[in-house]
Computed example of a mutant assay.
Amino acid sequence: MTFKDALRHQARSCTGLGSPFMGRLMTLFADRLRPETAIANRLFNWQGDLSPSGQSVPLRLAGALHATALQGGPLRDVYPPHTVSDDALWSAVKETLIRDEAQLDRWLDSPPQTNEVRRSAVLIAAGRWLADRYGLPLVLSELGASAGLNLFWDRYALDVGGQIFGDPVATVRLAPDWQGPTPATSQPQVADRRGIDLNPLDPNQPADALRLRAYLWPDQPERRALTDAAIALATPSVDRGDVASWLEQRLSQTRKGHVHLIYHTIAWQYFPQESQKRATRAIESAGQKATADEPLAWFGMESDGTPGSAGLTLRLWPGDLVFKMGRAGFHGQHVEWTPPD
């Protein structure tokens, strides 16, 4: 896939995810960008998988540009809520590619870190399902946790057709388009929570908070509001390091009387292949030692090649049971919940 192919693919995806501005911006890049600047040259010569299922290069670029707009750069007056012509938007983009070259170059080095709070809707449902099945408190281990906002899903409220699951006065309320049965009524109790990320973000630090907000699309203010509410609630609990090494150490600890829930949401694809293999071996090895009073659960919300949504999978030990739990929009905007009876 060429860079321009990746841009057009991303344009269709963004439009389908309810961001016409991002669809327009990505299309403008595909139509008008030429290798005339250092940043453009880097993008056209990028090696590897540029697509959303790989290195997500178009989203790296979009986040880098949005950061300059949030800081008051030339894009500030042409990004939403402003409405301008394609020519005016592109003129500001070209100016930014030159004016902020050093900052854009640094941002392109790292994959997106959206920390999309709406993905917690499926974590709430999965956590309640586990609480209902086992009746035990949970230990949470999130892989690719970014700022750790989705480590606090048990403090958020899920609205399913007017029925509230969680604290009815929670400051973070998620209301996806829900299909399927409602979540279990059991309220999970979380005894411990930690995450791991190669580049963890501290939402209380201005530079890290900027990064979190930059990957939220400019014409979707509701996502910004949810993120701001989650930042106000969260206390960072994310370690820096490789997921496999961290997970091997965390799984070595005894969790008697608890369900250890390992999970990741649109993160697995960004882990190096060797880390994926080591993490899988660590989980499966720990699963072989799981008991009825120390069960292990592995939940993933990850792209599986189906356009527009991610698959929800759950593996449980003892027994190595595998369940398809449904599907969800990549941003958690819709959920098709199909847990087993």
Rank of each mutant, 00 (worst) to 15 (best):
P74F: 05
A40I: 08
T68L: 11
A175T: 08
E284P: 08
L70S: 08
P272F: 03
A209C: 09
P188H: 01
R211A: 05
W217S: 02
R255Y: 13
D228G: 09
G23V: 08
L158N: 01
P52S: 09
Q249A: 14
L7G: 04
L233W: 08
F299H: 02
D109C: 15
A290Q: 11
R315L: 11
A102Y: 06
S51P: 09
A170E: 03
L321D: 15
H331Q: 02
Q163D: 10
T171L: 15
A67G: 02
S13C: 12
A64D: 08
L75R: 00
H264Q: 07
Y263G: 03
G319T: 07
R224I: 12
R32I: 02
G48T: 11
L210N: 03
T15I: 11
F44Q: 07
Q71G: 13
T235A: 15
Q179D: 06
E142V: 00
G166Q: 03
D228H: 06
M22D: 03
A64F: 01
L50C: 10
P203R: 00
L226C: 10
R213W: 10
V169G: 04
R119S: 09
Y134H: 13
L212G: 01
L70A: 04
K324F: 13
L251D: 07
S19V: 08
Q179Y: 04
G135K: 07
Q55P: 05
S237W: 10
V169F: 12
N199K: 14
T313H: 08
I266K: 06
R8C: 12
V93P: 05
P176S: 07
F165G: 02
S303P: 01
T338R: 11
R224Y: 13
R327V: 10
W217I: 00
L104G: 00
S51W: 12
D192R: 13
G166M: 00
L143P: 00
L136V: 11
F323R: 10
G300A: 09
A184H: 13
S252G: 15
T254V: 14
Q71W: 13
Q163I: 14
T227D: 08
A229M: 10
R281N: 15
P52D: 12
P168V: 01
M301N: 03
F3T: 07
A286I: 05
Y215H: 10
C14W: 03
V93I: 13
N204F: 12
R213K: 13
L158T: 01
G308R: 02
S91Y: 09
P236W: 03
A232D: 03
H260F: 11
N45A: 13
R223I: 06
W298Q: 02
G305D: 04
A209Y: 10
H9C: 13
W107Y: 14
D167L: 09
F330M: 08
P111D: 05
K256W: 15
P20G: 06
A225G: 11
A292Y: 14
Y134W: 14
L108K: 07
P58K: 01
L151N: 04
A244L: 04
L33A: 06
A102M: 08
T306K: 07
L130T: 02
D239Q: 11
P168Q: 10
S53N: 14
D293T: 12
T227F: 12
E294P: 00
A38M: 14
K324S: 15
G144P: 01
L104R: 02
W46R: 14
A64Q: 08
P183M: 11
A290K: 05
V169H: 10
V335I: 07
D109Q: 15
F323H: 14
